[in-house]
Write a protein that binds this DNA or RNA. Sequence first.
DNA 1: TACTCTTTGTACCAGACAGTACAAGACTCC
DNA 2: GGAGTCTTGTACTGTCTGGTACAAAGAGTA
Lengths: 176, 176
Amino acid sequence: MYEHGVKATSVDDVLVASGCGKSQFYHYFSGKNDLVAAVLEYQFEIVLGGIHEFRLDTWSGIRAWFDSLLVGQEQRGFKGCPVGSLTVELSASSPSLQRHVAEAFSRWENILADALTSMKRKELLEPRAQPVLLAETTLSAIQGGYLLSTARRDIRPMETALAAAYTHLRTSRARR
Amino acid sequence: MYEHGVKATSVDDVLVASGCGKSQFYHYFSGKNDLVAAVLEYQFEIVLGGIHEFRLDTWSGIRAWFDSLLVGQEQRGFKGCPVGSLTVELSASSPSLQRHVAEAFSRWENILADALTSMKRKELLEPRAQPVLLAETTLSAIQGGYLLSTARRDIRPMETALAAAYTHLRTSRARR
DNA sequence: TACTCTTTGTACCAGACAGTACAAGACTCC
DNA sequence: GGAGTCTTGTACTGTCTGGTACAAAGAGTA
């Protein structure tokens, strides 16, 4: 589903790939939508889980995280953000999946905002920095970078976007 | 296709909506892929055509353009960028459509880069500003903003992203 | 052993899908 | 006005789709 899109991946495709029978599938999932929700959950878990390897409340941690995103995008063959691609396709689908997506993005944003708030407390960010807005901006840059990089099959646009995002964060750093 | 996705829109759907017969369709298009390519072309034409209403080589023009993007996203019911959504779905499809997408994005980027180069010539941007990088960053912010805004059905994230993009451009402005 | 409840394999279904066949209508040019 | 080309409507085909039916296998238990 990540590679070919949700719509383009049939239940039968999944069954073949997993080596399961149909009855098994419909025993554990109520239908395709249920599976899609599970995939979404799974992908978000990976993305959000990956974040915790980094100390996002330090400048070097943020940089390391950005680098890991770049490496991942290249290694996976420019297939885009595991959740970004799903998001676009599902944003036009059933409301329940839609809510799922929105909520997952909020969680992601909150993790960033929390880290930035922590940086503010540690006086790495200036007092009037706005963590929530900075988190939103950063996430936008990441997603936009993924999209351009995927469209062009080139890591450069994403590098540029993340570098700009980092610069933008740095403009809110505390100066002593 | 913009509303429901390419895969989710059947040829028959298109025929019903257009009031055309099947033979008519296959007379003018070699198949669904051909239609998709035309849709992509059409959407890019609209997006790129809309740009020319603005003087992107002025600060106020850029701001006006950004505002128009925001208004459009809200008016169209948070359906995302007309080309961004297609891009994501098609980036996993046939290589010919893929190339189409990549090329169209390059055109978009070039328009921005040209405008920024012009600003540099007019000494609105500092001499060491890099139009191509700035254009890439701006485009990333736009696409990322669209994506978040669509996922959350809220204009705020896109506002934030565009405001940050504008600020980022302004950091390269010439100081006299 | 016999009785359950859970889990799985196989065959099947009705509808949607992209695309084709073919003939008939419309138009152009001599 | 007629031959030939361009355009269109209708019916059809084979394949794929998500989902169901149903029976059999397996696991637990008294």
